[in-house]
Design a protein around this nucleic acid. Structure first.
Lengths: 198, 198, 198, 198
DNA sequence: CATGAATGAGCATTCATTCAT
DNA sequence: TATGAATGAATGCTCATTCAT
């Protein structure tokens, strides 16, 4: 008796495991997060874990994949924007607001510690490239519109925008006096705007 | 009976191991850097390794300690500076130029991945605090001198300066189009100056 | 309420699984043949597998049982034979011709590797005993008829006949230059006849 | 302080582990012999086990290698023989007398069960080939000397000699009424001689 | 001091088996 | 009756650390 609806349950369960893994990775780092800890967190047995993911590494990759997909979706949604600065601000505040999930900064550190694994490096590079492509489009448009400074290439500016967002997330992880909401304003209006505009 | 000459040799050997560990941590991450790999890199036996350091974690802590000491020394050397912006720029360019040692960005990622270990978190927090103390002093002076913007507290400005430097190092690790020398200029004159000054 | 037709289907399905298991055991050995592989080979789900057999071991035992049954049947069919040597040759060539199913030699190796499991050892011993009983009868008759050598007990001769057949099957598995059809002649006329006759 | 004599100890220890593994493999089969059981048998820790052998499979291969080396040595020692039949008998009785170590027949079954692993198959094939090369030389000489039957190629005869020896070892494992010493005589004088001579 | 063999706790992963649907 | 998701015990192997020489 085929149970076609099970695919729903499977997807949900997969997401449940991913969620638990995200928490555990954020709390303990990649190697500190034993599969046993992840399974505890998810309330499942090790067998179930490996039923859904062939390897511990693969859960991490699945999390990264999720981020990549969201980045892609967001880029598409931004396509009908008109003002370059607004588009960029929109992208940046979205990225940065993800740090509202307290696990994100910890997860970012977890990933950093594991960039020596080629598959991870590749996934991170893919995400990075997506963000670059997305941003560079709007930066270039801002430059041609005379809205942004023209002494720097769109590429260099993009690198710096990513420096700001990633540096921001790192701050959240490390600096307890760093208030996300409050500093996001500073990021958009002072750092980005001052850096990018004429 | 302690022979002072031996102390010299010991110190040199200790430093040699630290250097090898730094390389290995940068290349393989904390867990990827087995003590065996570190020993290979240092050209010593595991016995010798544990003669100089009680645990693998302690080598990492020793490396961090070295950084802390240098930060402290640098802070002291800066004490007779007169111009706040110059002092800050000096600090920042020193920090950032350390990334000239290719191992630093990799090591920074290694440390990020292991921040869940309390001793590491403490050491990093100590370094962070030192850098804060050092910077905040000059930022406050720049504000009172009317040289810097006064709409933000010295503390917030300092957080952002650290965001820039750490974000910069992260960029070096992740972004191959990011040229250290060239971007350092941008960091000092555009990012910092635009952010900090009136 | 049992429907006799179902029993047919069940039996067929059971045989189908046994056949798939035989193939898989021959190809991968007992431990290399995971239940998953067997199910794949049979085109069924693991649930179905365990519906027909309580454990993996039981499929193997079922295969052995099949062999035992056939041996028994063959022994009965041989009962009206008249010439001892012909009867023995008949038995041997039947046994050996089973190696025409390419899976048999592999399966024999599979079983050898698992003789440390008491239930397997018992089943193999039962088959062995059956073959012994069958052969010893004709060997004894050949001896009393003065047709066979009388310097050896019927039991020892029988052991050697089994040595020849099992050794033959092992050869097929191991020695690619060993041509079944051709060597069967040699087995019957040279090895067995030279060994057994006056 | 270099301890050059340790190589002796290492070799001894390696052999000790090999010996324990041989026992355990013979008693429990390859998969039934967990590394834990082997370590217990050897009186060592798992760490030590893997210090000497990278893989469980490798101990098995090491045992096979030992057999191969001995076959090679034996072949060399046989080189100055003069009588082909005597040389062949000498080889066969050596091979067969190894079954005096009660573990050998069990180990042979263990290996049979694991022939699906390519590395094992290769090692067994190498041993087989060595034995073939060794025997075929004397068989060919016996044929040209008119001492042996000439209706079969030397190769076929050799295959049959190996059938006899391997079948013999299998018998020892399976047939409790099969007395090694007594049957060896039968092997040499009746089976081999009757098969091989004119 | 230096060495590297020995240790054993810890971990990712496999797989036969169960059972709700 | 058939399914396949869920289970968890068992296993091979890694690696930081100890200690006799």
């Amino acid at each position: 008796m085929a149970r076609p609806i099970d695919t729903q349950r499977q997807k949900a369960r997969r997401m449940h495991i991913i969620d638990a893994a995200l928490t555990t990775f954020a709390q303990h780092g990649y190697h500190g997060a034993s599969t046993a800890k992840i399974c505890d967190q998810a309330g499942i047995s090790s067998g179930t874990f490996f039923h859904y993911f062939p390897t511990k590494l693969n859960v991490l990759l699945a999390i990264l994949k999720l981020g990549i997909d969201e980045t892609r979706k967001f880029g598409a949604a931004l396509e009908n924007a008109t003002d370059p600065l607004a588009a960029i601000n929109c992208f940046i505040s979205r990225t940065v607001s993800e740090a509202g999930d307290w696990r994100l900064p910890g997860f970012a550190q977890c990933v950093a510690g594991v960039m020596t694994i080629p598959e991870i490096a590749d996934a991170v590079a893919e995400d990075e490239q997506l963000q670059r492509d997305l941003l560079i489009h709007w930066v270039a448009r801002g430059i041609s519109a005379g809205q942004f400074r023209s002494d720097l290439t769109a590429e260099r500016i993009t690198s710096w925008l990513l420096l700001f967002t990633n540096g921001f997330i790192d701050r959240v992880a490390v600096d307890s006096s760093f208030n996300t909401d409050q500093e996001t304003q500073l990021l958009l209006h002072d750092t980005v705007q001052r850096f990018i505009c004429n």
